[in-house]
Design a protein around this nucleic acid. Structure first.
Length: 616
DNA sequence: CACAAGATGAATTCAGCG
DNA sequence: CGCTGAATTCATCTTGTG
């Protein structure tokens, strides 16, 4: 091991331009034993490492399948095993794929007739195409006037209750089973046991879950808006260190530093008020919305989670002191995207846009699977940015890998992985990595294929627009609660619209948009949204404006008089001056672009004031 | 002038350790 | 509790080309 790494070190350094493959030296040299480390208990006879097996399992293959594939392929070549596993999956899925697709689409609420028609038209291969087709059918057939349902706008009253059906079912459980169920739901055994005891034997599972959630939320409440003086902050334990910690004495205060002592913690895992398929979904907020911030009109504000210190407490203080919901989109798609959302939407009974996107890189891009080396354990991509890796870098990686037969030494692996993570590259051939194509980013972000393609946008601008966009499925999950509230459609004021992430989310949720007033400074982006509006046969009105600063309060009031009040004000203000990738002008919330956040506040307040006037 | 490509760190949080 | 290292990040600027 030692002689190898020394040789390779020499190889690295004799290569010109190799500096760009530099990585921070590993802290634990004993890990350089290579991939053949410990083995999993039931697969002990094989040379495949635990990590590799774990990766296969994480990709959704069963251990039986993995064992079979390892036996069949000769136990040593992980690429071959993966290929075999994929073969198994495709062959077993093929027979049932059609009925599965039908069930899936009907489950989304499309009529069976339309589903069959779509499948006839597009085949049963591409569920995405079909969904799009179905959305077009429904849009064409729209005008569907739902009868006046009794919608309870006051969502905070019945937040704890489950439906009677759910409750009946849950009541039938005995205590042991309930404890098991709770542990299965990933509640700590101790908390579950205490909750069971406190709630008594007649309590339903729902009540117990609420009890545990309430306890968790009480803790969150304590930790949010926690006030410390400087001394206390410094002596706080690591666990209690918070996002907005004050600067250590002697350190120069950041210009973005807020002048308050509030601490906002980023949740770990970053699941906000809950995400699908993960434990910990809340039915009501840890910190209630203040009365003066209740909707309608609803609002939804977004920005990056990893902003400089003090930024989020400043943003929160400007938006009624509402607790931000920090969510990583890796829980919704195959790419991470850590964002904070401040909104006054209900959080009960959220649902996902259907179909949900692929959850791993390998599922999203199956063609890459056969090229994926066993030592690259990624199943999720990092955040999609506005720039992509250079061709020179991919070439250097290829040259270096070609020098080694089979698996390269550990230090080479580390360097390659480091660059792949940094530039979000995927395997597209033998020894060949590549940055994502724009169309692949569209897919990961939940946009229709070629949403940003053509129409006068340059390649670089396309990457920029996509890198600045919403992740549609994440935002859609939060907005889904609007669907039962506005069966007749909503009026939307969309600020900093970009390529229309909010509009695409609403459309995918099948929430009719009566009026959308979109404010977006980039002309190419405005054109993308206009094209989307036309192509999806929207019946509503789309109005677009350029600079948000020129949208005066007077104009806003006029628009509301013309179209009626806005039901939703949505937008994410510029993060340029907050983003970690910015080497030059990371100047905080008061920066040239990021300070447009205050325009969002101004406009929101104008809308809410005017709306309350109109109600009177 | 528009576009494409490449070069350019730091701020922040977290996990792990003594 | 304090330290260290690893990991991650909605980007800007300069240069070259047509």
């Amino acid at each position: 091991m030692v002689e190898h790494s020394t040789d390779d070190e020499v190889d690295w350094n004799t290569d010109d331009e190799i500096d760009n493959l530099h990585w921070s030296p590993p802290s634990s040299p004993e890990t350089s034993l290579g991939p053949a480390g410990t083995t999993s208990p039931n697969l002990t006879h094989m040379r495949i490492s635990d990590e590799t097996v774990a990766r296969f399992i994480e990709m959704g293959f069963s251990s039986d399948m993995i064992a079979r594939a390892i036996d069949e392929t000769g136990r040593s070549n992980s690429e071959l095993i993966l290929e075999t596993l994929c073969k198994y999956t495709t062959s077993s899925e093929a027979s049932s794929s059609k009925s599965k697709v039908i069930d899936h689409l009907i489950g989304m609420g499309f009529h069976e007739e339309l589903v069959l028609k779509a499948i006839q038209e597009y085949g049963d291969e591409n569920i995405e195409e079909e969904t799009n087709a179905l959305l077009s059918y429904t849009e064409a057939e729209k005008l569907c006037e739902t009868d006046d349902e009794d919608i309870n706008m006051n969502d905070d009253d019945n937040l704890f209750s489950l439906s009677s059906d759910e409750e009946d079912e849950l009541n039938s459980c005995d205590e042991d089973k309930r404890l098991k169920d709770l542990i299965k739901m990933d509640f700590p055994r101790q908390e579950a046991a205490i909750a069971l005891e406190r709630c008594g034997e007649n309590a339903s599972l729902g009540e117990i879950v609420d009890f545990i959630c309430a306890a968790q939320m009480a803790r969150e409440f304590d930790e949010f808006f926690e006030v410390h003086d400087e001394k206390e902050t410094i002596s706080n334990s690591k666990k209690r260190r918070a996002f907005n910690e004050l600067p250590r004495s002697g350190r120069k205060p950041n210009s973005a530093m807020a002048n308050d002592h509030e601490l906002i913690r980023l949740p770990n895992p970053m699941i906000g008020f809950g995400v699908p398929n993960e434990p910990g979904i809340m039915t009501h907020r840890p910190v209630p919305i203040p009365d003066d911030a209740r909707g309608p009109p609803y609002f939804y504000y977004e920005n990056i989670a990893m902003a400089p210190k003090g930024v989020w407490s400043k943003i929160s203080s400007q938006l009624y002191g509402i607790m931000p919901e920090f969510v990583d989109s890796k829980f919704f798609c195959a790419a991470a995207r850590k964002r904070g959302y401040i909104h006054n939407l209900p959080i009960k009974d959220r649902f996902q846009i259907q179909p949900p996107p692929h959850s791993t890189i390998q599922e999203a891009f199956p063609f890459t699977v056969r090229w994926w080396p066993s030592w690259d354990l990624r199943t999720k991509l990092n955040c999609l940015l506005t720039c992509i890796g250079s061709a020179q870098l991919t070439n250097r990686i290829r040259v270096v890998l070609e020098k080694h037969d089979g698996e390269p030494p550990l230090n080479v692996q580390k360097a390659v992985i480091y660059q792949c993570k940094k530039w979000n590259m995927i395997w597209v051939g033998e020894n060949r990595v590549a940055p994502l194509e724009a169309v692949e980013m569209e897919e990961l972000l939940g946009f229709p294929r070629d949403h940003t393609r053509g129409g006068g946008i340059s390649r670089t601008d396309r990457y920029k627009s996509l890198g600045n966009s919403f992740q549609v499925d994440t935002v859609g999950y939060h907005l889904s609660v609007l669907k039962p509230l506005f069966p007749k459609g909503i009026n939307v004021l969309s600020l900093f619209s970009g390529i229309g992430g909010a509009e695409v989310a609403l459309r995918n949720l099948q929430i009719p948009m009566n009026v959308v007033v979109s404010v977006e400074i980039s002309e190419v982006n405005r054109n993308i949204l206009k094209n989307f509006w036309r192509q999806t046969d929207q019946r509503g009105t789309l109005r677009d404006f350029g600079d948000v600063r020129e949208l005066s309060n007077r104009i806003i009031e006029q628009l509301m008089e013309e179209y009626g009040a806005f039901d939703l004000v949505i937008g994410g203000s510029p993060c340029n001056n907050l983003a970690g990738g910015n080497r030059h002008t990371r100047s905080g919330l008061e920066g040239e672009h990021s300070s447009l956040f205050y325009e969002y506040c101004r406009i929101l307040k104008t809308v809410r004031r005017k709306a309350s006037e109109m109600r009177r």
